[in-house]
Design a protein around this nucleic acid. Structure first.
Lengths: 332, 332
DNA sequence: ATGAAATAGGTAACCGGTTACACATCGTTT
DNA sequence: AAACGATGTGTAACCGGTTACCTATTTCAT
């Protein structure tokens, strides 16, 4: 591999000039520029990222930490992040924390050691002192869907509470008279807010009971298990709001296995808007988030921060949109 | 951030000793070791990965390049790779090439610049001269499922041809009398070999016709489109072998939309063994690969290579296993 | 007693970039 | 004509590690 000094020698200039040319800062004569370009080409010179990182403290890398690579939600998010990052010349390191706080911590350590320029958190084990620590280290980061303490970092999220209320209202509108909820991890804002939205929408009904909720851990198998327990306790449930789509898919699966007709006997609504919901039959009604847009915006914000934007921490809340599909289309 | 020299000063030794302690090479006295540990702790010292990479040419990073992050097959593969890498102290950079050759090339360039210790290719745009180039650069790599030229690199793959034949045989056993094939990209070994397996198994039947195959691009929507075209041309098809599971899922979806009963009217078999096949109803028969094991083995092989194993290039072929499910269970 | 081997640790060059600072030239302003 | 700013380029220190090479002491077999 050729080094910058080889190029300098061949072009008959000093390394500083090459560096200036590469980074487009400082003055370089037009003719010199041509000679440098020629030298770079003949030597097939590629600047060494390690040396660059070491000397300049910029690596052109951002990391996305997310909790579950098998959840299509994060797959889509990752694509958005990658697309934008690529556009700005950054590389993305995808880090799957597998919902384990220690993995997440390891990643943070490793990423700091590697001088990533910024971090996007779509994972949630982070406590507010972790956030403070990151702030102290001055490493730019953005939280997706989680805000341990609102003002201390920039957050990109959706209107989860509102969405959950829309979902429940939709089920009510379709004539459901006893609606259960499969909730996600309560140490996540997403899981918590959607739960709250459900609770607020149904608590004043006479049929409401705290035994109408079951955890589903944001996973397919969790959704299946939850349905089983719910239907055992309340065979007369006629509507289920699942805290995310993967759980909704699991719920549907289990309902079908139990011989419960969807939507006739039980109407089902999910949350997120991933493609999985239109792959199954019947297609599942869901509260769609603008996943790709969230990914794009957060990446843009992060890159801005990296490149010196010092504006205040902001919170961006995306609208959500209920998409009615077959799983809630009931004959009245 | 504390540096190695700070630690050296505090511990009252030279940087070489710290380095020796950190890398566990060379001799370090027990007492000295304790002082060093103490110093590291009080300074909260973390070695700088950039400097390490630059000086030692080892970064403790491996990259996994794959074509489609939305395909659960690669999600599972990625988890296996990550798990093993973690075990050996390596970090994984996940690179989603989105099936675009240029993205793949960009990644290779970027990864080389960043001194990744090794690369795992589950993507396939690589031509044999690319492979030669990698070999020349002496950067360890392993191909998953693709072997441009068998002897020039280590390959981990499955018995695709055999699996495809098993799939077709299974459909025949279940009484199918006209079997179509939805094939994957023909510039992939996987797509090609499964196609060949199908072709070899059916070409001697009187009902066989080249118009019984359609491309599905390994994607859900591709599978849907393919089914539409196939059924238009041959309404009497009673069996479909899809070249992978995502296409099979798409096929099922379309068949259901078209009012075709699965498996009664058309039996359906996929390939890969991803969880999606048991989420849909009916559950889809598939030829399962040992995805996780393939990921584990290839990562182990890669790390071995990185750590100096110079044995010959080998080809590891995993067995596949037909898993009969409802989508092919026919009343006879 | 002696020399080889094992143990312990220091010095300084090096990895391949970036950049502060110095210096030179040239056109423009006053 | 002197002063100044813009342009163009080189020198060398520095980023934070690794490691080759060297020195010194201890252990141990002969």
């Amino acid at each position: 591999m050729a080094t910058i000094r080889d190029v300098a020698k061949l072009a008959g200039v000093s390394v500083a000039t090459i560096s200036r040319y590469l980074n487009k800062n400082g003055y370089v004569n037009e003719e010199t520029k041509l000679r440098v370009e020629q030298a770079i080409k003949t030597l097939q010179y590629e600047p060494n990222a390690m040396a660059r990182g070491l000397a300049g403290r910029k690596t052109g890398t951002i990391a996305l930490i997310f909790p579950d690579i098998t959840n299509p939600f994060f797959a889509e998010l990752a694509r958005a992040v990658e697309d934008v990052a690529r556009m700005y010349g950054y590389t993305v390191i995808l880090c799957n924390s597998d919902n384990q706080a220690d993995k997440e911590q390891t990643y943070i350590r490793v990423l700091k050691q590697r001088y990533v320029d910024g971090i996007l958190f779509a994972s949630y084990s982070l406590r507010s002192d972790d956030v403070d620590a990151l702030n102290n280290e001055k490493i730019p980061f953005i939280m997706l869907d989680r805000a341990p303490r609102e003002t201390s970092c920039t957050v990109v999220s959706s209107k989860h509470l509102e969405g959950a209320q829309q979902a429940v209202q939709h089920l009510l509108d379709e004539g459901c008279t006893k609606i259960a909820h499969i909730y996600g991890p309560q140490d996540t804002v997403t899981g918590r807010e959607r739960f709250m939205g459900y609770e607020q929408s149904v608590k004043h009904f006479p049929w409401y009971s705290p035994s109408l909720v079951e955890p589903g851990y944001f996973r397919v198998d969790g959704g299946m298990e939850a349905v089983e327990n719910l239907m055992k306790r309340h065979p007369d449930i006629d509507g289920i709001f699942a805290g995310n789509d993967t759980m909704a898919v699991g719920a549907l699966k289990k309902l079908q296995r139990m011989g419960v007709r969807v939507p006739d006997q039980v109407a089902l609504c999910g949350f997120d808007g991933i493609d999985l919901t239109v792959i199954v039959e019947p297609e599942i009604t869901t509260v769609a988030q603008s996943i790709y847009d969230m990914g794009m915006l957060s990446t843009r914000l992060l890159i801005k921060k990296i490149e010196g934007d010092n504006s205040e921490h902001q919170t961006h809340l995306f609208d959500v949109k209920l998409i009615p599909r077959e799983s809630t289309r009931r004959k009245r």
